[in-house]
């Protein structure tokens, strides 16, 4: 299962599961990242971490290590648009792309 960490800017994703536990998990969920919510990856910070996403209509930044606990799938909408990359690319491979 792909996690948000491996996503690239521009990806539109749906959250399938939040793994992890404790404070990090609850903080993430309190901010509105819950199962079924839609996420758009906006950008990665200039130094490669953290990343910026849009969730529930606002901008949120989170570190890749925390993004690793968010399992996602592509939304049908983005599959149509970006059919060239049906699978999320390998972790860390996205840093060259903008």
């Amino acid at each position: 299962m792909a996690t948000l960490r491996a996503a690239m800017p521009g990806d539109k994703l749906r959250v399938t599961k939040i793994t992890g536990e404790g404070q990090v998990k609850h903080r993430i969920m309190n901010m509105g990242i819950t199962r079924g919510s839609e996420i758009t990856v906006r950008k990665v910070a200039p130094l490669g971490d953290p990343m910026e996403i849009t969730v529930r209509g606002y901008e949120l930044s989170l570190r890749k290590i925390d993004a690793d606990g968010i399992e996602v799938e592509r939304t049908p909408e983005s599959l149509r648009g970006g059919a060239s990359r049906p699978e999320l690319c390998e972790r860390d491979g996205y840093e060259n792309a903008d």
């Binding site: 903080r27 993430i28 910026e52 606002y58 901008e59 949120l60 930044s61 989170l62 570190r63």
Partner: peptide, 11 residues
């Protein structure tokens, strides 16, 4: 006190 860095970027 490890707190996650999950931060809103306000408009």
């Amino acid at each position: 006190d490890v707190a996650p860095f999950v931060m809103e970027l306000p408009a």
